[in-house]
Amino acid sequence: MNLRTLRAFVEVVRQGGFSQAADVVSLTQSTVSKAVKTLEEELGAPLLNRLGHRNELTAAGEIAYRRALVLLAEHHDLVAEINDLRGLKRGVLRIGLPPVGCGVLFAAMFTTYRSRYPDIDIELTEHGSKTLRECLEAGEVDLAALLLPVDEGFDYQPVRHEPLMAVLPMGHSLAQRTRIDFTDLADSPFILFEAGFALNALIMAACERKGVTPRVTARSGQIDFIVDLVAAGLGVAFLPRMLAHKHQHAGIALIPLDEPHTDWHIALAWRASAHLPPAARAWLDLAKEMASPTQ
């Protein structure tokens, strides 16, 4: 068993197939398939049920996947600590960001960071919250921007706290309201983000508390497209205040959402047991320095 084999297995699970995993780890599909087979032979148990074009973890596979994430993370920590001991000059910032809000929150930070640390390489990964958590657990990124609350085993530094706003077509019967809740919107179709976006979970949990079962008419990972769909009258959407204001135009109405426990709290998270390299610590310091006093 070696780390290359474990990485191949992890990516087959994460990417959902051998060919997709091969692209990520820069190996051929047959090499990835052989690596998984070798791992199964070493462990003496099948790890994947191959169902047509899909692969599902067996009970042994669940254990192997969980342990593989830990081993890969420990290897990264070992290399990072040794590099620090040697006084590594260049360094690498490995950070994972979600598609929602990362431009508004972090674009200026990247500019400042690059000007201060021109020799630090930046490896940016963009995924939804679920995949970012897995990347963090596996040590593939040192920091990830996640919505609070974060999972046990992660430490975090708050970045931004924003209330949600309802985004309605200008012609909606409730477009002139000063505040709105999910009970008011029970009969309106919802436009949500794609599966895996943490903002969806906030919205659905609040609907459940109110006894509202929303009818989802569309999903997208692009804020501009979601706002355009709202303006076209397809449904209503929900955005953090700063993003809603950035995308405001004549075809939509923005109304504060009067719902407790739906605020958008985003933080930079890292594994509590991890060794944070200097490049990551410098990013955390910069985030604290550039935080808005109104947050």
Rank of each mutant, 00 (worst) to 15 (best):
L124N: 08
Y113E: 04
V150G: 01
D121Y: 13
G139T: 06
D184T: 06
V159N: 09
H161K: 13
P149D: 10
Y117S: 00
E123Y: 03
I95P: 05
T111M: 10
L88E: 05
E140V: 06
E134Y: 05
R114Y: 14
V104Y: 03
M170A: 12
R86G: 15
I191Q: 06
R179F: 06
L132V: 04
L146P: 02
L132A: 05
E123K: 10
G87F: 12
L185A: 09
G153T: 06
E162K: 09
L97A: 01
T111I: 11
G139P: 11
R86V: 13
Q157I: 14
S188F: 12
G153H: 03
F190V: 11
L147A: 06
L168E: 01
L146K: 00
V159Y: 13
I191W: 02
D187G: 13
T131I: 14
L146G: 00
I95H: 08
T131F: 12
G103M: 04
M170S: 11
K89Y: 10
G87K: 07
C135K: 15
H161C: 12
D187A: 15
C135T: 12
V92I: 02
A186D: 01
Y113S: 03
T111K: 12
I122R: 14
E137Y: 04
G87Q: 05
V150S: 00
T112V: 14
P149M: 10
T111Q: 14
T178K: 08
K89W: 09
D151A: 10
A108M: 05
I191N: 06
I122L: 15
A108C: 00
D187E: 15
E126Q: 15
L93V: 02
L124V: 14
H172N: 04
P149A: 09
K130T: 15
Y156L: 06
I120Q: 10
